[in-house]
Amino acid sequence: MRHYQCNSPEAAGRILAACLLVDGHLSLTELDALDRCGMERRLLLNRYRLLSIVQTLYEDLTRSGYLNWSDMCQVDPTTLAWLAADVQDRQLRRDILDLCSEAVMADRGHCDREAEFLRLLRDAWQLPARPVRQVALAGTPAS
């Protein structure tokens, strides 16, 4: 897997890209949510650069010998810890985790793989869990 400079937009973007792929697909809803949450300001990374990082991550993961898309989207804890080590700045870590959480919630819910990814990332950075933001369904108030 390629190495990026510590605390670089690419290192941050690769973690975000891994989060986006963990459920097996990347949606425009997720990208729109990231834009609304200030991804470019917070990570110095626009949508098009993020998509390029997603492609690079995909290439790196497919070289790792995974046999199918579902398995390939799984970033094992050791690899995630290695990716997380490329970000040392505490504020950047919080921004990445916030953006990952927003992307996960953008499609009105999350899968077990996404929840596990967020947990492993928080553990790697020794950050406390934040309460999950409740998403209002059509016609019902958020709690």
Results as ranks from 00 to 15, higher is better:
G24I: 06
W69A: 08
W82S: 09
L57D: 02
M72P: 12
T56C: 08
G24A: 07
R36T: 10
L83F: 06
R36S: 13
L44M: 14
L44V: 06
Y66C: 15
L26I: 09
E40W: 04
D86Y: 07
M39Q: 00
S70G: 09
D86H: 04
E40H: 10
R49N: 09
L67I: 10
D32M: 06
D60T: 03
Y66E: 11
W69S: 10
R49H: 09
Y58C: 14
L67W: 15
T78V: 15
L83H: 05
R49W: 04
T78Y: 08
L28V: 08
R63D: 12
C37D: 10
T79R: 13
W82G: 06
W69I: 07
L43G: 00
W69V: 08
L43P: 00
L51P: 05
T78F: 11
L51D: 09
L43M: 03
T56Y: 14
T78A: 09
V75Q: 06
S70V: 12
R36G: 15
A81N: 03
A85N: 09
G65T: 07
Q74F: 12
R41K: 09
E40K: 11
L43H: 00
V54T: 05
L28M: 09
T78H: 10
G38N: 02
L28I: 08
A33L: 03
S70N: 15
L80G: 03
Y66R: 13
C37F: 13
Y48V: 10
S70K: 14
I53M: 04
A33C: 05
Q55N: 14
H25P: 04
A33P: 02
Y66V: 15
L67D: 11
P77K: 01
S27T: 08
S70Y: 10
V75G: 08
L57F: 12
Y58M: 12
P77I: 02
L80C: 04
L50T: 00
T29V: 15
L45F: 00
D32V: 06
T29Q: 15
L83A: 05
R36V: 12
L28F: 06
V75P: 09
L67T: 14
L80E: 03
E30F: 01
T62A: 10
W82H: 11
S64V: 09
Y48I: 11
E30Y: 02
L45T: 00
L61G: 05
E59S: 14
T62K: 14
I53G: 01
L44S: 13
D76T: 07
L31F: 15
T79D: 07
Y58I: 12
A84Q: 02
